[in-house]
Amino acid sequence: MRAIFLILVAAATLAIVSTVFGGGYAINIAIVVCIYVILASSLDIVMGWTGLFSFAHAAFLGIGAYTAAILGRDFGTTFWLNLPLGMIVAGLFGFLLGLPLLRAQGHFLAIMTIAFQTIVYLVLSQWTDFTGGQYGIEVEPVAGFTTLSSYFYLVLVIAVICLIAIRFLTQSRLGDALQAIRDDETLARTIGMNTKAVKLVALAISSAFAGGAGVLLAYHIRGVTPDDYTVLASASIVAMVVLGGRGRFWGPVLGAVLLTALPEMLSILTDYKHIFYGGVLILVTMFAPQGLAGKFSRWRAR
């Protein structure tokens, strides 16, 4: 319960800071932060809790976004239908990818997710008739939430719901099962756990959340273009989880906030922000391998 209270406090702080102290620009960043918090936390379901390194999270983000855009274009469906459908389609793809993925071993698994990510990107950018190719597809704003600040509150509420859901999930029996697999898969199998089914469910849920984040992103930018869904985007989501700390509830949240907001604060140094970003990733993995949340809890334990 303490975690849920903290989530609400954090959300309220974000809302106050961005609407009272900042204008549209701060709200804009706050929206992107919320979307990436969902992404990083959902990736952590498979990465932190089951130890699967996935470089395909931006692909699921894209699948969700394009599902919403294509449904809106071809059937005129609204946000309230597109959001669950985007999650379902992304979750389905996650499940389908999981079937061959979970048979692969070790590093092959990471390579397979990269291959999947690249294929999704190339399909989005090249299947012009269906996805609009490089032109992308326009998305109308959500009715009733057309202003930036009202849309921000919508995204914030959805992000809070997602975080609470993820919190419950990781604290549930499924979470225990995932942790058992991460710690010792052979042992988990020996005690009669269907480890593959558990992992498959985790991957599908994680992808579904990413798809939901994609729907939110599509309505935020009011359109979809393939360049938001590259392997680089996937890698930066992985970086958020690692920077914040794997397998800790607050780790990915912290990582997403830092890595989304940091480049914005750095834009005074427009010319050097990527150099700085790359340097930070190296230094964090060298000096805080368990992520910042890990560092923090160790410091508190002391």
Binding site: F53, V238, I275, Y277, G278, L281, T285, M286
Partner: peptide, 28 residues
């Protein structure tokens, strides 16, 4: 080597950071 000593899986992230770092230093 220093990273792999602590946690080998982190090498992926460090190499990703290194890739961004080198690309942008050369760009500059």
């Amino acid at each position: 080597v220093p990273i792999a000593k602590k946690d080998p899986t982190n090498v992926i992230i460090a190499s990703f950071g290194l890739s961004i770092l080198l690309q942008n230093i050369v760009l500059k």
